[in-house]
Amino acid sequence: MSSGLKRDRRILAGLATAIGMIPFLINNPYYLTVLNLSALNILTVCGLTLLIGYAGQISLGHAGFWALGAYGSALLSLKTGLNPWLTTALALGFTLAVSAGMGFTVLRLKGNYLVMATLAFNLAVYFFLVEAEELTGGPPGLPGIPPYTLGSLAFVTDLAAYYLIWPVVLITLFLTFNLVHSGEGRALRALASGEIAAACLGINPRRYKVLAFVLSAAYASLAGSLYAHYFSFISPKTFDIFFSVELVAMCLFGGKGSLWGAVLGAGLLTPLPHFLSIFDEYRDLIYGGLLMGVLIFFPDGLSGLMRKLYGRKAP
């Protein structure tokens, strides 16, 4: 086993232990809500790191995939009465199909054109959710989404949701670490570093770009479904392009070169606006200033900074 994977698994084990104990120390439900949101963002940003940091592609449309997961699963469970676990899987399948289709058409684009196409996808989904009121409930949103259940246990409280969402996220992280420490992860990074050189080693650029895209869309969709059944209410506002932008900001802030960047970026930037709400006046100033500052002085993000401080090589 490579030393990188060993190290990452050790840190992950430490993180899992800490996560498991937090509810015994904090029982303020508001904090648990924020932690749950952080977990969902970590899941999504983890996928984005694969796409942006590893495969070298850009997407400003991942809130659109959240929306597919959230609305897809919520609508199915509301309209057909199917079990939320099943509808989550169905929504995931739907997202896989959509993102694969998109992957094959859109990933031919480069730079600005790719940014715009993914933005356009997000905007089209958003405006559709707003306008197709009969189906989606329109701007006021969709209430009464059933929660996940396990036997007689329903995951409705923040605490129960905490012990559902975090394990899902940690397991996904575990699997994603497997991936990045394998030939597949290497091929992705080679592709980001030099597409032509990678192709001349037999790495199929199209396959790997689409793989990273589909995988990141799947993570986003899963996060969206978990979100919908946890809060039991969703509205289009949650899935606008600002959320997409925020997700990529988390990815860069944490450092796109490593999956730990996703954990750091989403783990720190998700709670930030909630804490900044005490001084509402200065919220945008602080958020914008912090984002600029970190990216200007530490372009490799926080994980890049830590790597420099500890002189370690990232995965």
Binding site: I52, V248, Y282, L285, G288, L290, M292, G293, L295
Partner: peptide, 18 residues
């Protein structure tokens, strides 16, 4: 890195709005 530079302008955009 263009993406990082782009997100600096996004940070600036949020800052200006503030």
């Amino acid at each position: 890195d263009p993406l990082t530079l782009i997100f600096i302008t996004i940070g600036a955009s949020i800052f200006i709005r503030g």
